[in-house]
């Protein structure tokens, strides 16, 4: 239900992002989704990868500051308005979405939106009650 997102501190300097992508690429780790939160002074790279444990160890060994954040991957129909439905359900339950980003899985032929909320369990419950499916790790990683 809940999947692991790898969050990486990225200093605002050219090439840093390429370095990180290079480390993962060389080890054959596949990025399923990524997003960058960017401020004037630093960035936070958020990644969904097929092998989160390995990625974490590799990045730590490369002296990156990393953390693992439990997030939800909600499967949505690739149609206009489907993201709005998900967000409305959460908003009505008073669940605040810290951030989110979308990706499409070619293998599964599905679209997903990754969302970060305070209380994952409650969000899953609330989405399920409204017939919205949250992907499990297997579906995302494989």
């Amino acid at each position: 239900m809940i999947i692991d997102q790898i969050s990486v501190f990225v200093e605002n300097n050219p090439g840093r992002l390429a370095d990180i992508a290079g480390i993962l690429g060389k080890a054959g780790i596949d990025m399923r989704a990524m997003s960058i939160a960017d401020t004037a002074k630093f960035g936070i790279l958020r990644l969904i990868v097929d092998k989160p444990r390995e990625a974490l160890e590799l990045l730590r060994a490369a002296e990156c500051v990393v953390s693992v954040t439990p997030v939800l991957a909600v499967s949505i129909k690739d149609l206009p308005g489907s993201l709005a439905v998900v967000l409305r359900v959460l908003a009505e339950a008073g669940i605040n979405v810290e951030y989110g980003y979308a990706f499409v899985s070619r293998k599964q032929g599905n679209a997903y939106v990754v969302i970060r909320v305070e209380d994952n369990r409650r969000a899953v419950e609330c989405l399920a009650q409204n017939g919205i499916k949250v992907a499990d790790g297997k579906e995302i990683y494989e």
């Binding site: 939160a37 401020t39 002074k41 630093f42 936070i44 953390s67 954040t69 810290e98």
Partner: peptide
Amino acid sequence: EMTPEMFSDTVRQVAARE
């Protein structure tokens, strides 16, 4: 230098610690 303790996945928290 950034440390794991100071880091968070949300911009809001990192900015607050900064």
